[in-house]
Design a protein around this nucleic acid. Structure first.
Lengths: 338, 338
DNA sequence: CTGAAAGCGCTTACAG
DNA sequence: CTGAAAGCGCTTACAG
């Protein structure tokens, strides 16, 4: 590593003080345009680059937002991030992205690093393992703004951006019912997760309203949201005497696995078995039959999240900030699978 | 923002010097276990957290790797990043991810920020717009290790990790030829990009070897790699008198678009038109007919990239580091579309 | 408009 | 084993 050029080097070369150099570089108004020009010229010539660590140490502002998601490898998360960046960049903020890989320990480490690096704010969607929120509460206590999105919790007093999962699940279940389906199964995640609970409750509510019973063996909870696990689920459902005529899947990837199982088992979709997902992965458009799903406006949710946290960051630190919880309704997209 | 606890606060409370506190915190060996214990205890009680900016300013080591990719919203890139993280975390490094969004200007900004934040190394895949490499050369001149992956250039003297695009394209074209196809079209990106050029040349080489001519109207160059553009390409090919009997697509997403066009046009795949992609997006498994493709080992490429740059970072700065270029062969995965 | 000085939070030779 | 001092690269009142 070479010794980088510092303002000291510039100052020495020009025979002026570092204070003046600093002012010229930051385009201060208390400086003559002449010296400013000279400094800027030399800075360019000598390939001067400011040390952001030193600046951050003094300014206490990094103009950096930290984002923590379970994985970037899913449409929903990567789209949200794009939405966050879209807003952040307009305001001169850079966005640092980290993946927790659904590991609580990694999440804790990342949050700690982010906070210790003095980012201006942290946007986080919890890992699947996260059950306690001490690590976030500590960051909050340190006065660092945190915004929770999609995978949130009730315990924390922050701004939040979430999907209206209850509404979405109810709405898509109603759609299946309208299609004449009466024995609808549910393929979803563990109900310790709020999002899973909500979607199940929405599903249940629609069934209840229609006076349709839910068979216990039609509720399959998976720990992992993978293609293979969904396939097993369909095999399990189809091997019983009590076959469903539709399946509402917690996530598109599950519905896509379900679809594959249907192909293998020779089940006609949607005639024998209608399928519906949630989330609107790009993939759901490309499979055949294409997949009915509740589309989460992930990009817009990211934008909204960024807006909220920037508001908080830019608010007067004195007055209590008014935390908002934005509940975003997903949109039903009907395709061939129902 | 509250005033954070510093080592000064700890020192005052314990009536010892900041130097001693610092040593206790960093688990130095020149310290009595007694004072160490006391410091650690108080640090916990007072919720002390080290300021990484201050540490970085002195240490010149951040234990952070910066990664710049065109987008995280594609399997190949997100998988590579997971591979990079996998290796980096084992070595105690954190990974900061940035998206250039295929914008040269944004790429330049990000690289500048990364370098000015004193990350220990930068792994970058160029944006589609990037034609000059001054921004990287400058970073190199500053002594910061840079590794190029997938979207690279010849001009820069760094370690590189790339796909053997020529081999991959040739191999998959040969596969199509073996399937009895003789009029193979090519759907790909602009050949100013090295990766596009290589894949086209591999395609051409296989055709040449087999004594098969390539019709000029069978070579379609698209500027964007999107589903819709690929569909148009197929419409264009099919509306001519000189219809191909197979299409080698530069990327899976193009092949998937092609597939959709075939469905709309009633073209039987692979009988009338065989289709092959490149990259092995997850989606290519899920579409129907499933897609033949050259599978790039993206996770492993990420791992390799991280290994190489960590080697460089950990090498004695004195001796010239021996830059390596790793050329990774993709694997042919034959599925239903051919 | 410019400079000397103090300081951001931390680390590390150098003495003792 | 501990402390005083210098310093990392920068910014910002305070004087002038």
């Amino acid at each position: 590593m070479k010794k980088p050029i510092t303002i000291k080097d510039l100052a020495k070369s020009l025979n002026i003080s570092v204070a003046t150099v600093s002012r010229a570089l930051r385009n201060s108004n208390e400086i003559s345009s002449e010296t400013k020009k000279a400094v800027l010229k030399l800075a360019k010539e000598m390939h001067y680059h400011p040390n952001l660590l030193a600046r951050g140490l003094i300014n206490k502002k990094s103009k950096i937002l930290g984002v923590v998601v379970p994985t970037i490898n899913r449409q929903f998360w990567s789209n949200s991030i794009s939405g966050i960046e879209n807003i952040a960049y307009k305001d001169g903020y850079k966005v640092m992205i980290f993946q927790s890989a659904e590991s609580f320990q990694k999440e804790v480490e990342i949050v700690e690093t982010l906070a210790n690096s003095r980012v201006d704010g942290i946007l986080i969607a919890f890992s699947k393992e996260t059950r306690e929120y001490e690590h976030i509460q500590q960051v909050l206590d340190r006065g660092i703004p945190v915004l929770l999105f999609e995978r949130v919790c009730d315990e924390l007093n922050t701004s939040k951006v979430v999907t209206d999962d209850f509404f979405g699940a109810k709405r898509i279940t109603q759609h299946l019912i309208l299609r004449g389906k009466k024995h609808i199964a549910y393929l979803g995640g563990p109900q310790v997760l709020a999002v899973c609970r909500e979607r199940f409750l929405g599903f249940k509510s629609a069934m209840d309203d229609a006076g349709l019973p839910i068979s216990p063996e039609h509720v399959i909870e998976t720990d992992d949201f993978t293609f293979e696990i969904a396939k097993n689920g369909i095999y399990q459902l189809w091997n019983s005497n009590n076959k469903p005529d539709a399946v509402f899947c917690f996530a598109d990837i599950l519905a896509i696995g379900a679809l594959d199982a249907c192909k293998e088992l020779g089940i006609r979709v949607p005639e024998q078995l209608a399928l519906a997902g949630f989330g609107n992965d790009d993939t759901s458009r490309f499979v055949s039959p294409s997949l009915t799903t509740m589309s989460q406006p992930s990009f817009e949710m990211g934008q909204l999240a960024a807006k909220l946290i920037l508001e908080e960051i830019n608010s007067e630190e004195e007055d209590e900030f008014d935390f908002k919880t934005e509940i975003i309704k997903p949109n039903l997209i009907v395709r061939e699978s129902s």
